[in-house]
Amino acid sequence: MKSLTGMLPYGRLILLLIALGLIWQVSSSMLGVPDYYLPGLDSIFSMLHRHPSPFIAGFVRTASEMLLGLGAGTAFGLCCGVALHRFVMLRQMLLPLLVVSQTVPVIAFGALVVMWFGNSLWAKAVIAFYLTFFTITVNTLAGLAAIDPRRISLLRSFGASPGQILLRLQLPMAGPAIFTGLKLAVALSLSGAVVGEWFGDTTGLGVLLLQSMYNEDTVTLWATILLIALLGSLAFALVGVLERWLLFWQPRS
């Protein structure tokens, strides 16, 4: 049931974006802020309009790296979470190791990953994956641990197997926690993909950032930043839609 009040937040968001755009445009054109600091939105859009191909190619490339890493990281993180929840020994052994692995900044691994996987799309996907899976693992683990044990007892009393309990009860019940992790993972996988490109590549939004920095081309720089924001928002919205669909039973605030 979509009511008018339900649509209100979207309306407000659009109004806010329009207002921000106006302030931006006014401050750059009328207050005389130099292009070097803040180019007008008009010059950014006309740049995107005149030379769309590097931006489109970059967007597609970065989006693929991100989605590959995010997808693999989510799948692996879910398996990790389930396995670590199930086997206490494994959890005691591996969890500290995983935590330590997350304290090493991804930049430290970046060069290594490029050497292993070449200057390919896969190298960036691996970096996005590395940043993603831990968040999913931890959130899955938390979600599974929070389930009322009496729910599990009830299904056991009906003769359910551990596999049935996992699929019919534990995973759906941990759904809200998993989605919390997934939303964090969206932002992480995007930075992973963008930063990964800095280790060397020829296409991608990260590459465009780097190139425009060297060329002191603020218009391209801002155009790229806006595209990265767009990519992140789209992915976030996609996860939001998925969440509403899968967790329709969740009370929403």
Partner: peptide, 11 residues
């Protein structure tokens, strides 16, 4: 077996 709480699945 029926426990004290209904433990219905919300989905």
């Amino acid at each position: 077996f029926m426990p004290q709480q209904d433990l219905l699945m919300p989905w």
